[in-house]
Design a protein around this nucleic acid. Structure first.
Lengths: 233, 233
DNA sequence: TGTGAATGTAAGCACCGATTACAACGATTG
DNA sequence: CAATCGTTGTAATCGGTGCTTACATTCACA
């Protein structure tokens, strides 16, 4: 891409097409190039953000010619989509693991747990989170598998909120609004962290996790503590 | 950048160096190329997002050779920074105009007004908002003018919240947490809109402005309606 | 009237994404 | 066992990009 630098002609293999019939040297066919390319791209994302991913560099790291990746991905965007799907898969696994540990009897507690887990993962894997959330690198509607992943997560929070409401843990409120506001809150917080806004708001790296929890708690207190339906300002 | 396409060899001027001494034809010196380049870049941002900005295309639109912009901006990033400063200036003007119309006696109302204005501008100028908020295109710490712009806006909301607290419009709460949560909420909502998440959450383009207002109101109700200092969950 | 700083052009580098023609495998068949 | 054919790699190439350097032109000021 735009001057990723970092490529001194680091010893590429001498590119002999293939050593006749030495089976262990360097087989002409890579084995699982697709997988390796995705891994390389993820590594690149981790190093320099989504912009730093180039097909050529991924191919270089896979020890393969610049044109080879296009046998597996029709375009750079397709590669990015594959990376995003992988990231989304990991994200979902983390969320589900966190929810599995949460008490089933306390819906609002589960809601809180969801928010905390979301923020923790996003802040620990900032570039992966960025890839997932940006439509530029990942067309959710196009890739059915992940799209349903996402829809499932949305449905999950919807269900949890509905349970909380039924259990009387929520004041009078519009559940859809609560859901969107909650999502906007954690999404915004995560992106503020990623985009480097936190220092400007007086939140150091050390306090950011505590602040994340505080913010989630503040929101939950806001929707839970509604004494009367005098909510409308 | 990466295949912005859109450039059929549309009639470039025949590039005669300069017509001897015809003063009105095409002066060798552009006049205010810096300004024109920023405008062209802003236009490009509006058309295809920050990724779609290329120095060459900006130069093309300014009717100037590909190397000329580098007399005014040492790098593409510098150009993007200039674009971001311009966008930030417009953003700030909008916010201040909105606040000027808000009643002075109702701090919480002013806070609400601030949030609404923020969201309205962000959703009307999505790409400009994206540039402002992403550190990739704009290093806030580097450009003093805009940095202070931003610091002033942060200080402003801080003051408004403090006033609201003094006026008894807020329940017992940590003001800093409220400020960060509020920011995360509007930032997240704006970015969700930009990143195309809204359809997934069942919010159509027609309802998005109303939803934005609802979400702001929900948040304000949450921090205002605190009956007792039982805030901590 | 000169002269130097400012600002443009032209040419070229390295890198990128993407396409094409060709070569080497490897599995499926006859 | 061997021919074949689809898969997956290479090599070369194209146009686009950011950026640099050498050179040309103009403007403003001494």
């Amino acid at each position: 891409m735009r001057r990723p630098a970092k490529s001194p002609p680091a010893g590429r293999r001498s590119a002999k097409p293939h050593p006749a019939r030495a089976p262990a040297a360097k087989p002409y066919h890579h084995g699982d190039l697709r997988r390796v390319l995705i891994d390389a791209a993820m590594q690149l994302v981790g190093e320099g953000g989504p912009e730093a991913v180039s097909v050529r560099e991924a191919a270089r790291r896979a020890g393969v010619s610049p044109g080879a990746p296009f046998r597996h991905f029709p375009s750079r965007d397709a590669l990015m989509n594959a990376v995003a799907e992988e990231a989304q898969r990991r994200f979902r696994a983390e969320i589900e693991a966190a929810l599995a540990d949460a008490p089933a009897g306390d819906p609002l507690g589960r809601f809180r747990c969801l928010g905390i887990a979301y923020l923790r993962w996003a802040m620990k894997n900032p570039t992966h989170f960025e890839i997932i959330s940006s439509r530029r690198f990942f067309d959710h509607d196009r890739s059915a598998g992940v799209s349903s992943d996402n829809a499932e997560l949305i449905g999950l929070t919807e269900r949890i909120l509905a349970e909380a409401f039924s259990a009387g843990q929520l004041g009078a409120c519009n559940l859809k609004q609560v859901q969107i506001a909650g999502r906007a809150l954690v999404y915004g917080f995560a992106r503020m962290h990623i985009d480097g806004h936190m220092p400007r708001w007086g939140v150091g790296e050390a306090e950011v996790e505590q602040t994340a929890a505080d913010v989630v708690d503040l929101f939950i207190a806001g929707i839970a503590g509604r004494a009367a339906p005098s909510a409308k300002v």
